[in-house]
Write a protein that binds this DNA or RNA. Structure first.
Lengths: 118, 118
DNA sequence: TGAATACTGAACCATATAGTTCAGTGTTAT
DNA sequence: ATAACACTGAACTATATGGTTCAGTATTCA
């Protein structure tokens, strides 16, 4: 029985599973933005937007600081390295599987081609 | 107001946000496996495991077929290309932001260094 | 001082996840 | 034919998400 757990990846992949939150990352890629600006951009209440930003913040993808009455949101310095690493390693798993499948299919083809009828 | 939506990425990132499901992908990288084998491996009921596999299947990451009374699960041919692509594009957004920050910090440093005292 | 702005928190709703148990159905092996 | 096996579906639990409204608090500006 295997015991897995990586709350960091849990949180960041969960954060990325929502189109609005992926959009917020796009937006912040163009520069810092307040909750109000983001809420306007995505046609949502301030409270709704605040929750999305909190999810991104808990995932370490976004950082915020309060400047006067405005909360300024920016991309976090942690970046997407861990997520990219997981995806890359496992992308190869998928590819290897299909390489293996190709091999099997080629072997079957050879067995057919050599006319042994087996 | 921006209108985003990409259910494919929604589903696959959501599927990847659970450690058990990421573990299932690891496991299937070593070869096909039945629901029973996976349930054993992760110390879970058959019903629980079936749900995880369904989430992965809806996300297109896993394919299953019923052979007799056994459901055989394997990695899907779609792979993780779309997810890798999103991550790569946005990884650069993060990096560019910090390049920009570096620039600003360098400019500030220069202004300090030139002794204008401004 | 007072109004407007920007956010915050509590409370609520519907739906999804992550898991369980229990009661089946269909398949295989004796 | 019968038992064992592998799965399936319904129903139930607790918690999280994605959104809302409403009632504040803190800041800024006139």
């Amino acid at each position: 029985m295997v015991q897995y757990s990586n709350t960091a990846l849990d949180r960041s992949f969960a954060a990325l599973s929502d189109a609005t939150r992926r959009g917020i990352i796009d937006e912040l890629g163009r520069g810092e933005a307040s909750i109000t600006v983001l809420a306007d951009r995505f046609g949502m209440t301030l409270t709704g937007m605040k929750k999305h930003v909190q999810v991104l913040e808990r995932a370490g993808l976004v950082v915020t600081r309060k400047v006067g009455r405005v909360r300024s949101c920016a991309l976090g310095s942690r970046g997407l390295a861990a997520e990219a690493a997981w995806i890359e390693v496992h992308r190869r798993l998928f590819e290897d599987r299909f390489d293996a499948l190709d091999e099997i299919l080629n072997e079957m083809k050879q067995e057919n081609d050599d006319g042994s009828g087996n």
